[in-house]
Design a protein around this nucleic acid. Structure first.
Lengths: 133, 133
DNA sequence: ATATCTGCAAATGGTTTGCGGAGGA
DNA sequence: TCCTCCGCAAACCATTTGCAGATAT
């Protein structure tokens, strides 16, 4: 039924890179890190494996702003904060608000499977740096 | 300060098309509709004006799934539901949950400007159609 | 009058994919 | 062994942009 999946060097390194960072890096950053371990790695392989790992439920794909996807080594449902100044994506450590699904289910008269919630603002680091336009 | 902006035929027609639908169409659908009125309209102009209208606060850009943007003629903050079967995007008529921002602000120790919330599931129409794979 | 806008077409850039060879199970 | 995966490079596709002529104000 489900397609077989081999644990290749490439897949392991890609997963390791992603699991060992708290940031939510885009594919090309993962590519650069992984190349330190596997110099012949190709970007296409990174994308292929990120998609496989996503389908396996090992990682999450975050797509903010439509242009570029970021990946999250923590597959557990959680919320994110996006800094509008530097673009950093941070985890938001608050419980999943299941009541929201009930509210929406009532309004739409259909079942809600899950939701996605992101917060926007200026992160502490950028705020400390001060407003230099 | 703010760049001047002319009300051209193209901009007006594009805005009219978007304001007169409850769906949340992508740029090429708007393009096709607007061409009924302005046969020489180009897709580049549609994109350019959608970005201008977005900056003016007249419309919203919705980017779900990273590949393709949809546009919303209602610029008021509101939530959306995405049908995982047919891809339709529907409005969710529930009040903005400002408490969420408080929660996240506490967790992150920074100010939250706003948030974005989307619900996922199967819409009533698809549910009625039954599960045909 | 003149700065902004348009149509056209080419460029962009992140992501996907076809291919022939390599390598996990 | 053999079927899946890899590296490479070309293809994709939504969106952006440079240019020269058109147009709103």
């Amino acid at each position: 039924m489900t397609k077989a999946t081999r644990m290749t060097k490439q897949k392991r390194v890609i997963l390791d890179v992603l699991k060992s960072t708290k940031s939510h890096p885009p594919a090309d950053w993962i590519y650069m890190q992984a190349r330190k371990e596997l110099p012949n790695l190709s970007l296409g392989t990174v994308y292929r494996n990120l998609n496989i790992l996503k389908d396996m439920g090992e990682i999450l794909e975050l797509n903010y702003g439509s242009t570029l996807s970021r990946y999250d080594g923590n597959p557990q449902e959680h919320y994110h904060f996006v800094c509008e100044k530097c673009g950093a994506v941070l985890d938001v450590d608050i419980p999943i608000q299941k009541e929201l699904d009930m509210l929406a289910a009532q309004a739409l008269e259909t079942e809600i499977k899950h939701h996605r919630l992101e917060f926007y603002g200026t992160c502490r680091k950028c705020k400390a740096a001060g407003p230099q336009s």
